[in-house]
Design a binder for these strands. Sequence first.
DNA 1: TATGAATGAGACTTCATTCAT
DNA 2: TATGAATGAAGTCTCATTCAT
Lengths: 204, 204, 204, 204
Amino acid sequence: MSPRPVDKEERKSVIATAAISIFREKGYTESTVEEIALKAGIGKGTVYEYFKSKDEIALRIFDEFFLHQEAHLDSLRASHKEPSLALSDFIRTSFDGIEIFADVIPVYFEFWSSGTGKAMGLNKRMSSRFEKLALQVNKFLQKGKKLGKFSSNLDSAALSGVIISSIDGLRLYYTLYRPKPKFFSRQVDELEKVILGFLESRRN
Amino acid sequence: MSPRPVDKEERKSVIATAAISIFREKGYTESTVEEIALKAGIGKGTVYEYFKSKDEIALRIFDEFFLHQEAHLDSLRASHKEPSLALSDFIRTSFDGIEIFADVIPVYFEFWSSGTGKAMGLNKRMSSRFEKLALQVNKFLQKGKKLGKFSSNLDSAALSGVIISSIDGLRLYYTLYRPKPKFFSRQVDELEKVILGFLESRRN
Amino acid sequence: MSPRPVDKEERKSVIATAAISIFREKGYTESTVEEIALKAGIGKGTVYEYFKSKDEIALRIFDEFFLHQEAHLDSLRASHKEPSLALSDFIRTSFDGIEIFADVIPVYFEFWSSGTGKAMGLNKRMSSRFEKLALQVNKFLQKGKKLGKFSSNLDSAALSGVIISSIDGLRLYYTLYRPKPKFFSRQVDELEKVILGFLESRRN
Amino acid sequence: MSPRPVDKEERKSVIATAAISIFREKGYTESTVEEIALKAGIGKGTVYEYFKSKDEIALRIFDEFFLHQEAHLDSLRASHKEPSLALSDFIRTSFDGIEIFADVIPVYFEFWSSGTGKAMGLNKRMSSRFEKLALQVNKFLQKGKKLGKFSSNLDSAALSGVIISSIDGLRLYYTLYRPKPKFFSRQVDELEKVILGFLESRRN
DNA sequence: TATGAATGAGACTTCATTCAT
DNA sequence: TATGAATGAAGTCTCATTCAT
């Protein structure tokens, strides 16, 4: 008698996945709800049973994305390795979800840049992620200093932000230019070497 | 006989400037031509005397922006300082036009992400700028190797891209989070130290 | 489950009919889609659910019109009467749909005259109709010659075109000046007499 | 001291001529005043020194065209030949200005079809021309009847309109399909034969 | 008189969202 | 719950016309 219960969450996920693939192709603004519905194999009206608006679809995508990121942060937090190794791990694993990053980030920027994005505290979420990461990295830097592994002259507060943004810079580079995997892998190596090399160098 | 002739180029510039300020506020998509005209103190139709379409306004802005960038590249090319100093200069001066960067880049991303942006070879321009920069940085890296200043083990091809994207990463960080100038200045210092420190370190 | 399905074809027809009545009043260019929608009792956006553009509405109208014409041609083709009678029938029945003709032809000309009309092979359709008609009339002329009913001196190729364009001329006359039905009816009679009289006359 | 007097009339003519050539190409609606000015080798604003509006340019063209037509009518009126010859002449000379006809008529229709055209008594002018012509042809028909050259059964009132519209039909045919001159010439011959043949035939 | 820069009314078209079924 | 037909707000762009020079 009761109608077949649909797994709301799963359905939302299906729609969000369809949306990502459309957004990737045409960007947020130029993608239509109809296209998304089509891709998801449902009717246009049905989309609105699961999302209040087109915006919400994007927001959901960002949510999932940020969850990924938080997980990454948690793994950094939980690391009991010594600072160099922890940071080294952190840098490498930052590129694990690069394909997702490359799909989501352009939409994120587009959204963020728009009035709508600014209206919602979209930026807050992102910057809070950044700050948390920086804070955590900072802890490792300080630990390294304390252990005598890193120079005591490090401006660790500033540096932690630099490290994160270097990583983000390389991820963005991947997003924009899609280098060959082999080559990109070498670049990740280099980034790691640059940062770690610097930290461990006696000269700073 | 004929009415007052106007400096078409200057007029375009006025409109473009008005456009930037509107775009910054609401992003490209949500800004209307009417708003831009209003800001520029002219009628809606007049905008179309100077630009064929709304797109073209954005393109013009990007053009000016890229010109800035090219100038920066040229100054790097022309540098006859020894590699460390040249790179050091390059990194610092990369942040000279940071405000312009912060205004233009979000619009650029929004545009790039859209179908329109992809249609025009918008990406080409950006990636060619990246490659030229990387090439030039690479030259300095190799020069440094030859001079024995930098380790001969450097993967200079990969590294040059990493250096550029680190800079871009920090510029993007500024764009997104607008850190306090003082603090940001320390971060630029750190970035420079990280890169130069690594290059000059004997340990890599 | 799904909303009331509508007869798309019928809906298009309703819109087209509304469009004809607006076009008749103000011509194609000066009619707005909004007016058409209003006349059809629907919203402006709905028009675009059924027609991709304003052009397409006109094209649809022309299509229906040409279908009428083709039917007329077919009836001529299928006629097994002797040539004089067949042509006589043809001439008279050419004026059966005169009201439709009078509504559609001005729009057709307006459209044809515009760049858009030329772009689409609008002319092709019309001239192919003309040629087919002329060809068929020609056949009857030749048959008449063979049967000894018509003079063997007839330039039937040229004449067939003249016959069609005389008919079109009278139809256009109706369109432009809307003569009184009684009087017009006499004119149709005269046209028929002129043509048939000539054909059957021994003097040519 | 007094500025070089410009021949207003000549200037208007230059503009009108430029306009015709633009109209022919793109139709009235899609032609812009700017294009016309360009073609005429003058500034856009200057057009408005000579014509109050774009409409007026078209009207001027029609005026010139109608003048042509009137002249033709006058020559018919002045003809003292016997009816058959006069009509025969009339038919042939109707095609003398066919190129002008072919240029102007599409614009005329487009204009006539539009609300603007209807607003101005554009139609009046055309139908008055038609009626005058028909009246004059009628006179010749009656003269022919009186002289015993034409059958006394002729419905000359109706027939005169038919004759004019047959001619117009063939002129329109030329306009729309641009037949080869040789072939068209044969068609004019046929039209003449059809009409005269009918009139002189004893059988009606 | 000649001009072309400036203008804004107005048209077409898109598409997120609603809602009857 | 699922749908897609209906909608109208809103945006881009065109172009006849005006007017200061």
